[in-house]
Amino acid sequence: MVEFWVNVFLISLLVVITFYIIRLKSLIAIVALSGAYSLTAAAIFVNMDAVDVAFTEAAVGSGISTILFLAALRYLPLEEAHHTRFSGWSLTLCIIVGLMLINAAFSLPDFGDPGAPAHLHVAPRYIEESYPLFHIPNVVTNVLASYRGFDTLGEVVVVFTAGIGVIILLTGSTLSMRFRKSENLPVQNKEASKKET
């Protein structure tokens, strides 16, 4: 029962954080709040027994993601340029869609129901079969690397592609150090020659 109330409290905290993210104008404050959001989400994941996910969210979501946002803000203005006007029609759209989704949510199986269809398909097989087959107690690792290896391969390739994309966008080449030094020299020479002329 304690678990349930902790869950209710933490997940309501997320709503408060999101409200302030909508209200605030300073981008650094927004980035810091989104880090806090990720950390709260990690606490929620621990409470809902997803320890691996919580670990990842704490390391990636609140660590690396916040640092990347801050590193990008070095080159950007730190405030929103003009105050965002309250836009009625988008709020109405969101409320209508939200009400429809909440109406649908009541026909989902109850939170934590052991007889929900999601728990009856392949999950029991993963839990029962994986130890005799692999001798590895962490079921998440088994499913990640062996049962669903194709899926993980695809995700790793996506991460790799995104990394290449960022490096090419920001440095112009994947061998940046080698070329950047040679690029800079002629430009400086040109400026020097312009000054001379």
Binding site: I64, I67, L68, A71, A72, R74, Y75, T141, A145, G149, T152, V156, V159, F160, A162, G163, V166, I167, L169, L170, T171, S176, R180
Partner: peptide
């Protein structure tokens, strides 16, 4: 397989940081 995943994720995260903080 996990070693491969770890290598890629390590290098991509560090590469992203290098790209953002070394951008001129």
């Amino acid at each position: 397989v996990e070693l491969g995943v770890g290598l890629t994720v390590f290098a991509v995260m560090l590469g992203l940081f290098y790209a953002f903080s070394g951008f001129k």
